[in-house]
Design a protein around this nucleic acid. Structure first.
Lengths: 190, 190
DNA sequence: TGATAGGTAGACCGGTATGTCTACTCTTAC
DNA sequence: GTAAGAGTAGACATACCGGTCTACCTATCA
């Protein structure tokens, strides 16, 4: 292995933990499940991470970064604020249609694994703030009135659509959200 | 005590558990906390409820019923679909402003305490469906076009607003949701 | 050759969780 | 007066949790 910290093992732990955290939830995923699935010794985990909370933080920081990149990549191929904003919802509808869909990982994180004053909650908050800021950017200037307000409203629809899709086990709330976003954009178009 | 099942003790258990479940979350609230706060023996709980899951179910069934009544009571004093629908958001804003606010109890229940095929998840689903149906009724017939669609969209805004208020620890998402609901209603007004 | 770093296996610790069991007390009703 | 129902106190069983520690293995590299 390299002279510095062993990257592959650490990365494997993060990726294995990610799968379990997203599929089964953070509190439901014990250390034992992670090391068993990663086929790694207990001490290997604790040599790479100070604690479970440290591992959770690493997993979700990486996850947030990956999602930002994925969203931007999707938007690059599209033109205009309508297409780019609505693409967010379409992507979510695809994810929600897969079985085992558990809603938004960051909302879940905030609710089930993080007190409001914790670093994990702050991470969820930041990710959501980035989503809102991204929507704001896609809306551009001059096309819509009250762009900041509109971005906030569309972000609310996005959250509500994903949560609703999980609760109702259906992509219908996400479709409602997308259509509502469209209506709001049309109403705000100058 | 009465010849039948002892009501007062059972009720006290439910009310005590309710407070703890809502304030600290269902998984974070152990049986021990419940019986300590209710000042009741361990076996008293298990003589009244088959299991913790059974207690949780009783608590949230009662909670859903109480909330339906409270929402209807609020709406009785108001006139017209705009006032009655927007009142839902105003009430939520009040609740969200209180410290210790933990978002929507039923969404939390679905996420942190219930597999999608469980009775608890179904309960959360039913409660959300009732909210949507209530919005639909308040919208009435003839005032708006696509009333079913509009009700779905407003319900999504409600969920997104509450979840956003918790994640961002701010009532701003709820205000955005209310204003968006207003815009959608205006756009659908015939 | 031999030091070092990274990984391994598994015992172990203290804590907490739900749930069971027993023996006891108290109150009500017949 | 006594039987039954409801509640009590607390030990107990079992399982899991996160986390620590030790002794060992093995590959790399100077």
């Amino acid at each position: 292995m390299s002279t510095l910290t062993s990257k592959p093992t650490k990365d494997r732990l993060i990726e294995t933990a990610r799968e379990l955290f997203l599929r089964e939830g953070v509190p439901q995923t014990g250390i034992n499940k992670v090391i068993a699935k990663a086929d790694v010794a207990r001490m290997t985990l604790y040599n790479n991470f100070a604690s479970k909370a440290d591992l959770v933080l690493a997993v979700f920081e990486r996850e947030a970064a990956l999602r930002r990149v994925a969203i931007q990549a999707t938007q690059e191929d599209l033109d205009g604020p309508f297409e780019r904003v609505l693409a967010l919802f379409v992507v979510a509808e695809d994810v929600a249609s897969q079985k085992g869909f558990r809603g938004c990982a960051f909302i879940n994180l905030a609710i089930e694994a993080a007190a409001p004053d914790s670093a994990l909650h702050a991470l969820a908050q930041q990710h959501k703030a980035w989503i809102t800021a991204n929507i704001r950017v896609q809306l551009g200037d001059g096309v819509f009135s009250d762009t900041d307000v509109l971005a906030d409203q569309i972000a609310v629809l996005w959250d509500g659509g994903i949560v609703g899709a999980y609760v109702h086990q259906s992509d219908r709330p996400l479709r409602s959200a997308r259509e509502a976003a469209q209506t709001l954009m049309r109403a705000a178009a100058q």
